[in-house]
Design a protein around this nucleic acid. Structure first.
Lengths: 198, 198
DNA sequence: GAGGTAAATTGACCATGGTCAATTACATAC
DNA sequence: GTATGTAATTGACCATGGTCAATTTACCTC
């Protein structure tokens, strides 16, 4: 059960890997990231990468998690939405980010569950934070009579999550030649899900 | 635009591939299926498999699609549900099937969208049928006052789909040591989503 | 039944993620 | 400083899905 703290060398290696991977991602996109390219540019062996991250998705999860956290910061800073459409507006940047690349969606979905233990993972932490944020919004909006009160804010928050994933899944299956965005597809679901009863 | 009908030889090869693959799946499960094993047991070259199916998922999709169709037959045969809990009961077998293996869920999710064109694919056809079935249930239940009428049956049907995927995604992320099943997790969402408005 | 043509199949080859026994670098005790 | 144990890293190797130019097979026409 005892384990020493990691040495600086290890921290540097990890930082280098993330730096290189981040750079590749920003210039070429998530789906263009190759393990071989990362380790080559980072100047380490392949095995090293996999001693730092469980697998390629684990590396991606850290990068994606950071982006998601940034979006959550933005969302949180804007305060409680004034209406249901306002929720859609708040969600729009995050939705657009995920919609840019299927692998983002895949990684998020894979790590998404775990609304419970194992908070150590970045993605998991992001999801917990997201659900918590939604729930706090909804709780306040319930008190203001803006959303239904016959169901707990937590369940409503989870439902939003479900609809987010739904519209994104559809998004990736379609040719979206039209100007439809995931956010606009989300709106009717949120209305029906959250609108106050009578 | 002209193209001849496939020869018997081709149909036989395809049937053989599906037969072998189906057998492997039933004895070892979907996630244990290997392309090399299939082609070896089918007595054909690797390239042949990929001339019949776009990729490994394409092969899996045919097998999974058949199973899904079977479940839809069952569901349809039972007639319109008498209540919201009844919907959950109808859904339970399908849900359990998907819950047995992550790759089933992944394949279904990948091909799930396409509520539109390209009906040729098995999975797509299954999804369209599923949504249609849900919608017809809900339409009838609306008339009987069993589910809310302030939203179209089609949107409600899509929402059920979203919740199905949601509880399944959670299912695969958790250690389900407890006796919780995807179906029981689904119930509260369906209640909140469908319950008539006062 | 010869020749031509398109369908069907082949299998060597590639791309890519991931493994693990062996090796090197570091820290700590003496 | 030297020994010793552990952390960190290495890179040859493997597993597996997928490609495609070349080859074989079936069909059609004269």
């Amino acid at each position: 059960m005892k384990s020493r703290a990691p040495q600086q060398r290890r921290l540097q290696t990890r930082a280098k890997l993330l730096e290189v991977a981040g750079q590749i991602v920003t210039t070429q996109g998530y789906s263009a990231l190759r393990v071989d390219e990362v380790v080559e540019q980072a100047g380490v062996a392949k095995g090293t990468l996999f001693s730092h991250f469980k697998d390629k998705d684990g590396l991606l999860a850290v990068l994606i998690g950071a982006q998601v956290m940034g979006h959550l910061d933005q969302m949180e800073a804007q305060g409680v939405p004034h209406s249901i459409e306002d929720i859609t507006r708040r969600l729009e940047p995050l939705l657009s980010f995920i919609a840019t690349d299927r692998v983002i969606f895949d990684v998020l979905l894979r790590y998404s569950g775990s609304t419970g233990a194992k908070v150590d993972e970045v993605i998991t932490a992001g999801f917990i934070r997201q659900i918590t944020l939604f729930a706090s919004w909804l709780s306040e909006m319930q008190q203001m009579g803006l959303v239904r009160t016959d169901t707990s804010a937590e369940l409503l928050a989870e439902g939003i999550q479900a609809f987010l994933n739904h519209v994104l899944a559809l998004w990736f299956c379609m040719e979206h030649s039209n100007e439809e965005t995931p956010a606009t597809a989300l709106e009717p679901f949120l209305q029906t899900w959250l609108r106050p009863v009578n």
